[in-house]
Design a binder for these strands. Sequence first.
DNA 1: AGAAAAACTTACGATATCTTAAGAATGAAA
DNA 2: TTTCATTCTTAAGATATCGTAAGTTTTTCT
Lengths: 197, 197
Amino acid sequence: MEEPNEYLNQFIQHLKETIAFNESEEELIVSCLEIKYLKKKESVLEPGEVSNHMRYIAKGSMRVYHLDENTQEQTLQLGVENWWVNDLYSYLSERPSRMFIQAIESAVLVQISKSKLEILFVKVPQLSNFFRLKMQKAYVVLQERTMENLSLDSFEKYEKFRKDHRNLEQRFPQYIIASYLGMTPEFLSYLRKKHSS
Amino acid sequence: MEEPNEYLNQFIQHLKETIAFNESEEELIVSCLEIKYLKKKESVLEPGEVSNHMRYIAKGSMRVYHLDENTQEQTLQLGVENWWVNDLYSYLSERPSRMFIQAIESAVLVQISKSKLEILFVKVPQLSNFFRLKMQKAYVVLQERTMENLSLDSFEKYEKFRKDHRNLEQRFPQYIIASYLGMTPEFLSYLRKKHSS
DNA sequence: AGAAAAACTTACGATATCTTAAGAATGAAA
DNA sequence: TTTCATTCTTAAGATATCGTAAGTTTTTCT
């Protein structure tokens, strides 16, 4: 059922979509990887901990969320296979996270620790490029989201979410999608009904 | 009135707060800089253009904004002396921007073109670090803003803005601050009155 | 200083979104 | 299959935010 090599392979293929490397570099990379199995609802990171791994989802679905003052959950990021999930704030600044990184479906992550990654950056410089591109993409996505928050009303945000992530809508409960979009689950339910007839 | 060397010097001091370099490196850097003077309301970037400079504000104030479908202005970024302003999306992806980058007070920018910066990264590698740190900071600020958008109501956002940027409130008209916070100027005015008594 | 433009305020009716509470549907576990 | 827990829906009243329009104040330009 659980076949580590398959997940490592999937990860290597993922890297190869963006950068190239030879056999020995590949071995070196693989030697730095860790596999983490998560049951549904289990977390890899909780508030107070410092995130010191980059995390790739090989299988399953994850979300990054946070409890505000009123213990309302705010979802910052969703992810499925081949996405990366992390609290980059904590990872980059090495300060305690306020986030949960939680499995929604049972999941398999491929992780690299920050210290090993620093070493890899020296030995396999292409990797540095890979992560620079990831960072840039993450920034652009966030900026897009900020603009949407300023200009779209709730229903428009929901429509855009569906259009942009057709596959995600089925895999996350609606109350999580609502918290990602910044509205109450009741209101999302109301909007869906209102626009379905 | 306009003293280029003073602004170049200010820029070099700004770099030196984060990284170190020697005389010859400094000369090299300075040889790549451009100074740009802007009158109030003048723009350095408009929709359709590709942003190919990194821009440091030596003097004055700037904002980055965008017109949505209803020609409403949404302000994405504000900046004063010693801040960087750009549409990183356009700069990084080399695709046309949808933004205006506009002077609010008359301003002086110190700019480096992307092509020269790439060369500098090779010759003065510390610079690469400097910009990596800037990128990270920008990401964290955006993430913070996204979380606030999800959890705070309008007045709380306004309070937080004042607390975080005491100096900015005086230097930008209220309708710009309102558009940065994602509310109408009328509503911001109403909130200010309501909470002042 | 005076005129024109820009920014800010006020007030009110219209909409959007939330809160609460209860019930219905679905999924998980025994 | 029954039971329990989770998720989703519905509805009604409360609150937040907007749109509009008019009037005031402040800034800019000549």
